[in-house]
């Protein structure tokens, strides 16, 4: 009996692993198909613009408001510690570096996965469930070129813009707390920031991170939607998986990218 139970557990574990690898391969294949059929999404650029509106412009509110609060909290928390070492002017550096290097790209990607990624998965999953994708194929319209690719490029375009806006608004929030509220000198706040934030090493690397996160988040959302079982339950599970997988992928990729960027 025990042996029987053990074999069943082992086979379940193996099936799970094989399933994961299969999904990774299928995701990679979808990524490749999206890349080669993305010519369509640039020729008919309106399709992509429409998706940029839905994933980017409509995400602005949540991104900007959370950026503002993140910046304010960073300034408050940072001040508590920096004050002990008598260097409260360095608060500008702390806020700017934390936002530009890490929090800007990462928090934006997490919010993006929750706000836009789920919408993409649900939309494509439902398109598949109602056989709209099959109908397109019947009409010799490639659903990958017509549906997947514009959403992919929209996500890749929107993410760096959102992350840059996040950093900027976060720094503004930090400024509002540090200078008028706490009373740090405004000149020292900006000059220390300018002296220690490097255009190439910090700002461009942060933007590069957000591009990578944009590819990862959008591709995961698209794949989960495209791969969802065409039922109500299947779509709901796919939506959940999008958030979980995207968040883990963003945090894991962040570590890898950071270790590469700091090593140089």
């Amino acid at each position: 009996m025990v042996v029987h139970k053990l074999t069943r557990m082992l086979s379940k574990l193996g099936a799970g692993c094989i399933n994961k690898v299969w999904r990774l391969g299928a995701g990679g294949r979808l990524f490749w198909l999206t890349l080669i059929s993305s010519g369509e999404s640039f020729r008919r650029f309106r399709l992509t613009i429409r998706e940029v509106y839905f994933t980017g412009v409509l995400s602005l509110i949540i991104i900007l408001v959370s950026a503002f609060f993140v910046g304010m909290v960073l300034a408050l928390q940072g001040y508590q510690t920096l004050q002990k070492y008598g260097s409260s002017e360095a608060i500008g550096v702390l806020v700017a570096l934390a936002l530009v290097r890490e929090l800007g790209p990462v928090v934006t990607a997490l919010l993006f996965a929750g706000r836009a990624g789920t919408a993409i998965t649900a939309e494509i999953g439902l398109m598949k469930a109602t056989e709209q994708l099959s109908a397109m194929e019947m009409m010799a319209v490639s659903p990958i070129a017509r549906v997947i690719a514009p959403r992919f490029w929209a996500g890749v375009i929107a993410m760096p813009i959102l992350a840059t806006l996040f950093s900027m608004v976060g720094i503004l929030g930090g400024y509002l707390v540090a200078v008028p509220l706490i009373g740090v000198d405004a000149g020292a706040f900006w000059s220390q920031m300018q002296a220690n934030v490097d255009w190439q090493y910090d700002i461009l690397n942060g933007a590069l991170k957000s591009v990578v996160f944009g590819v990862a988040c959008t591709m995961i959302a698209l794949f989960e939607g495209y791969d969802a079982p065409p039922t109500a339950e299947g779509v709901s599970r796919a939506t959940t998986r999008t958030v979980v997988t995207s968040s883990l992928a963003v945090l894991g990729l962040d570590f890898i990218l950071t270790s590469f960027m700091l090593a140089v």
Binding site: V100, I161, Q194, V197, D198, I203, A207
Partner: peptide
């Protein structure tokens, strides 16, 4: 925002 970051926050200038 990118320009603002580069000019006001970074040391491009």
């Amino acid at each position: 925002a990118l320009l603002g970051l580069a000019m006001k926050v970074g040391n491009l200038t």
